[in-house]
Design a protein around this nucleic acid. Structure first.
Length: 472
RNA sequence: GUCCCCAUCGUCUAGCGGUCUAGGACGUCGCCCUUUCAAGGCGGCAACACGGGUUCGAUUCCCGUUGGGGACGCCA
């Protein structure tokens, strides 16, 4: 039998980074086993579900390349089927109506807590006749769960986990307004979608015992479960808003590459020996559930950034140039797309640039001087440097030397400027510093010879000459 | 409060009884390379939470302690 996994997020916000890892593991497992990966939107909470959140899930998964098989299933649309199943349960005596009010339930929980027990419903209506029901109260439907014995979970990640049934109460299957609860919907949907492996966050572990009880009441085959540890923030607590970026779109906006995020998320709690750089193809080949660690791991932005600079350096230049557009100010990104000349500068210049950037955003910032027209913006330090008489002397002489030079490539320019510096007896570093300032408006940049080549002779001379004449 | 899970450098991890004077990566520190900054190369600092067992032998197995985390909704 072919395996089927699924990712089942609720559309109540952004696509959470933790959920993303869950999706990745499900996807990898399915791919590794030659099975299917399904997507189900758990939108049964009508109050909190939004279309915007659904879109965020779709676009986030697509961005990461975690494609799902078939159409996404919207859980709410299956409510009639869920009610049908509840009726079945009601008929065969595995479920019953409960008329307790919220106040009564709260009292029961307090009572149990006071007695040193888990807060739970005490089964008041379990064996009571509905004829005794208070008038005008709309009942909920509860599962008639076993009151003794144990429920056992053979978890793919956590191992064997056992819970006493006295710990669990009769969960609600149908709300008083007739809508199905999550606990029931997941079971019915996973069953109907033929899901064979439920891989999800650790926070669902205790839910699983309840869900197993539903499977048992229905006489359905129980899928295999694997509960992966949650991702924690740097402080060790579950990732939440106060930790900063929790949605994948935030990482996209930062200029993190999708392959970086996949690689990073995979290495959080899973390893393949000493391998750190694991491209998706390898991940699919190597992934296994047994390798998933059981302890939660903390999110480390530094390592993510380091990985990202690796993938940035490896990325194809054309793609990189295309993808920095959205990180550029509008006027510059327009220049990039409208003018082949400006783009051509980056075709060469991107090489030095991408070696220095940790994110696409940084790459875009670094690329600006290629797209800007003189006069370049300069800080006081640069202005001061360029206003010195020695600097302008160097610039003038350098302009003259370059004017008659025609081997316009990085290596030749390097030799020429080196000889030029020797001739002046001032050392390459001093010439480079001034040229860099004039060419880029900055004291930090890629190799000035690469920049000269990328800018072309005319623009190089233009920038050098301009600064040589500048008066501040 | 009740139940469950977890525990190797600051962080992510390798290790599945002897190969461990514990390996890799990020970060950090130093050196080299060098026109700046990166990248790269080389090297340093840095961990088996604690206490009991089991065993000829425990980082590895068992039990406790401590510490951390998660779950206890007519949310999902």
């Amino acid at each position: 039998m072919s395996i089927v996994t699924r990712f089942a997020p609720s559309p109540t916000g952004f696509l959470h980074i933790g959920g993303t890892r869950t999706a990745l593991f499900n996807w990898l497992f399915a791919k590794n086993m030659g099975g299917k990966f399904l997507l189900r939107i758990e939108d049964t909470d009508r109050e909190r579900s939004t279309q915007e959140a659904v879109n965020a899930i779709f676009s986030g998964l697509r961005w990461l390349g975690l494609d799902w098989d078939g159409e996404a299933v919207f859980q709410f649309s299956r409510a009639p089927k869920h009610r049908e199943v509840v009726n079945e349960l009601l008929e065969n005596g595995n479920a019953y109506y409960c008329y307790c009010s919220q106040e009564e339930l709260a009292a029961m929980r307090d009572q149990a807590k006071a007695a040193g027990l888990a807060p739970r419903y005490n089964g008041y209506w379990r064996d009571r006749d509905s004829k005794q029901a208070p008038a005008g109260v709309k009942p909920v439907v509860r599962l008639k769960a076993p009151t003794e014995g144990k429920t056992v979970l053979e978890d793919l990640v956590q191992g064997t986990v056992v819970t006493c049934n006295t710990q669990l109460d009769d969960m609600i299957l149908l709300r008083s307004d007739g809508t199905p609860t999550y606990m029931l919907s997941v079971v019915v949907d996973d069953h109907d979608m033929n899901v064979t492996h439920v891989i999800r966050g650790d926070d669902h572990l205790t839910n699983t015992f309840r869900q197993i009880q539903i499977y048992q009441a229905l006489g359905w085959q129980i899928p295999k479960f694997g509960h992966i540890p949650l991702i924690h923030g740097p402080d060790g607590a579950k990732m939440s808003k106060r930790h900063g970026a929790v949605g994948v779109e935030a990482y996209k906006a930062l200029g993190i590459l999708p392959q970086t995020l996949c690689n990073y998320l995979l290495r959080l709690g899973w390893a393949h020996g000493d391998d750190e750089i694991i491209p998706t193809e390898k991940a699919v080949e190597w992934f296994n559930i047994e390798g998933i660690g059981r302890s939660p791991s903390r999110f480390d932005m530094n390592k993510l950034l380091n990985l990202n600079s690796h993938y940035l350096r490896q990325a194809e230049n054309d793609k990189l140039i295309d993808s920095i557009a959205e990180f550029l100010p509008n006027n510059l990104s327009a220049k990039l797309s409208d003018s082949a000349d400006y783009r051509q500068r980056l075709v060469i210049g991107i090489n030095g640039l991408k070696q220095r950037a940790k994110t696409l955003a940084e790459l875009a910032t670094g690329a600006q001087f290629y797209l800007l027209d003189a006069p370049l913006p300069m800080n006081d330090k640069i202005k001061l440097l360029l206003s010195e008489r020695e600097s302008r002397e160097i610039l003038k002489k350098l302009t003259e030397a370059l004017k008659v030079f025609n081997e316009w490539n990085e290596a030749s320019l390097h030799i020429l400027v080196k000889d030029f510096s020797n001739g002046l007896g001032i050392g390459l570093g001093n010439v480079a510093k001034v040229a860099r300032a004039a060419l880029t408006g900055s004291e930090i940049s890629p190799s000035i010879f690469e920049i000269m080549q990328a800018l072309g002779k005319q623009e190089t001379l233009n920038r050098l000459k301009r600064c040589g004449q500048l008066v501040f």
